[in-house]
Design a protein around this nucleic acid. Structure first.
Length: 559
RNA sequence: UGGGACGUCGUCAAGUGGUAAGACACUAGAUUUUGAUUCUAGCAUUCGCAGGUUCGAGUCCUGCCGUCCCAGCCA
């Protein structure tokens, strides 16, 4: 019996039920799924759901999952994408069974089966051009008309198809179509094209072909060749299923796969249309496919998302046939949940303000010991140099404030995280009235304990030694779109791009230990959020931290 | 106005005739050297609407309404 690796009490989704049933009644002994991306763009969060589903199902039911590039259209595909897709799948934590497969591996077989269909008098070469074909196809409410070329003889079709293959006919001059039913209410069944002439090199097969099979023809046969038992795709392919089944029923294929559709993942305030993502990249609205604001896997990776958080998010979103839009807060929950548990803590001051501790000796320096994680001793401790001058965040000091403000205020006390409690005495200003420095005093003997006088601090703020720290740049990201549904019909998604989606902070000061940060280390900068070194632009000389996600904030930090 | 699919809390989502799981979000309170985490409590008399069948309906039937998909030699 297959083992269910998911949390015991979670109800099965409809595909899991189908599989459980197929296994129970012996329709299949072992399941085989596949993830079939077209290498024409980078993977995004929507693909992650499909990856988690297909690879997850195989693992859950003791089956296997293939990676097959659906590369039937050389005009749109590139190896660059093949490479990034493989990398992203691995990064997400999945491994495909056997070698990477390509639909183009089956071009010979597909071609032979096309000949077979012609000989069966089920396929014909059609000379209609695109405009004519559209007219003959009819429309949603009107039946189509048979192509005048539909009744060509087998011999003529064979000869013509051979000329197509040999490159003796121009692109668009004709196509090979299958004879189904031009008056079928399902438009997909009105004699779909299965081969078209494209005189271009293919990234896998080179110059071997100048005719290429269409998705409808190639996909199901690829599944059948690989012995895919459950071919899972998204809802928009639903009306293609009869076509899929037609080929399986009319060709001598080695197995009979079945297609199942689920609704694609949509997340509000973002877009998951490959075409639109490509536009954002091509028109430089963002910094490449791996821009941290993009929902691409590479962008999310650079942003600091973990594979585990993405998997959890996909699991939380569920698998159904209902089209809906998942709230980004669910994604944010998933990443915070992982990082809260696993990210080491550090302090980093984003908008530095100098504080002089007037009662602390000029020549004194202490080394404060702080845990790397509040409730995980296994992560060890770190050392924080402390001296007379420290830096705190400008937002953490006010000359006067109401009682709801729990930070440093003149005449009031605040706890320096992992250090002393201090009390502010004065704010030093420049000629324009800007606070440039704060004078304060430490309360003696308050490291790790409350003051002897019983007057406790109201809050806790983070800080960094004014002399012993690292300089860094911090990049804060906000949602790329201001509209909940930038993709909605009737509007241009470019109009809702958030002009403030990236805020670059320079002159930030991080605790000294951060000098050893690597691109693999996720940090929680206490009271600020989760950060990770930017893989693209950060260097030893210029450290750049990306904010993955801020801490949950129930207080309104923005005054 | 053709065909197909889908409509359960703000958002995902269980439920398959026996009297509305769970998660996110949100609200209130407790703990807290992160206004974080954790914890505790609250959050659909109601399942798109209207009829019907039934002792009993989110679940069955009928009608209606709404949303999405399909007229590429894209996938």
């Amino acid at each position: 019996m297959p083992e269910n690796n998911k949390s015991n009490d979670k109800p099965l989704n409809f595909i899991e039920k189908i599989i459980t049933n197929d296994l129970a009644k012996g329709a299949v002994n072992k399941i085989t799924t596949r993830f079939p991306p077209e290498p024409n763009g980078y993977l995004h969060i929507g693909h992650a759901k499909s990856i988690c589903l297909n690879f997850g199902l195989a693992k859950q039911f003791g089956g296997t999952c293939h990676l097959r590039f659906d590369d039937t259209n050389p005009a749109k595909e590139e190896v660059e994408y093949v490479d990034s897709i493989k990398e992203d799948i691995h990064w997400l934590g999945f491994e495909w069974d056997g070698e990477v497969r390509f639909t183009s591996d089956y071009f010979d077989q597909l071609y032979d089966w096309a000949i077979f269909l012609i000989k069966e008098n089920k396929a014909y070469v059609c000379d209609l051009n695109q405009e004519e074909m559209r007219q003959y196809r009819g429309n949603l409410t009107q039946a189509g008309q048979d192509s005048p070329y539909r009744s060509r003889s087998v011999e003529e079709n064979l000869a013509l198809f051979e000329k197509m293959r040999l490159g003796e006919l121009e692109e668009g001059a004709c196509s090979l179509r299958v004879k189904i039913d031009m008056s079928h209410p399902n438009m997909q069944m009105r004699d779909p094209v299965i081969y078209r002439i494209k005189k271009m090199a293919h990234h896998q097969t080179g110059d071997k072909w100048c005719i290429y099979p269409s998705y409808d023809y190639a996909h199901g046969q690829g599944d059948a060749i690989e012995g895919i038992s459950h071919s899972i795709c998204t809802l928009e392919f639903e009306e293609h299923r009869p076509v899929y089944d037609w080929f399986i029923n009319n060709l001598p294929v080695p197995s009979t796969p079945h297609q199942y559709e689920f609704s694609r993942l949509n997340v509000n305030y973002t877009i998951t249309s490959k075409r639109k993502l490509k536009l954002l990249v091509d028109e430089k609205h963002v910094d490449g496919w791996d821009d941290p604001r993009l929902p691409t896997i590479s962008g999310m990776r650079r942003r600091g998302f973990t594979p585990k958080s993405i998997r959890q998010f996909c699991d939380m979103a569920g698998v159904t046939r209902v089209d809906g839009v998942v709230d980004v807060s669910m994604l944010e929950y998933a990443i915070r949940n992982d990082l809260n548990e696993n990210a080491q803590r550090a302090m980093c001051v984003l908008h530095p303000l100098k504080v002089i501790l007037t009662n602390y000796p000029d020549d004194k320096k202490e080394q404060m010991i702080a845990p790397s994680h509040p409730n995980r001793d296994d992560l060890g401790t770190r050392t924080l140099p402390f001296s007379r001058e420290i830096l705190i965040d400008q937002d953490d000091f006010r000359e006067v404030a109401n009682k709801k403000y729990k930070r440093l205020v003149i005449g009031k006390r605040v706890r320096l995280r992992n250090s002393y409690i201090i009390e502010a005495d004065a704010a030093i200003k420049d000629d324009d009235g800007n606070i440039i420095e704060v004078h304060a005093r430490i309360i003696e003997d308050t490291v790790g304990k409350n003051p002897a006088d019983g007057i406790k601090a109201k809050g806790v703020i983070h800080w960094v030694c004014a002399t012993d720290h690292i300089d860094c740049e911090v990049r804060l990201y906000d949602r790329l779109f201001t509209e909940e549904a930038p993709d909605a019909a009737g509007k241009d998604f470019l109009d809702s791009i958030n002009p403030n989606s990236l805020e670059v902070l320079t002159g930030c000061k991080g605790e000294i230990g951060l000098k050893n940060a690597t691109v693999k280390d996720h940090y929680q900068f206490e009271r600020e959020g989760y950060f990770i070194l930017d893989t693209k632009y950060s260097s030893d000389e210029r450290k750049i931290f990306n904010r993955t996600i801020g801490l949950r904030d129930t207080w309104e930090r923005k005054a």
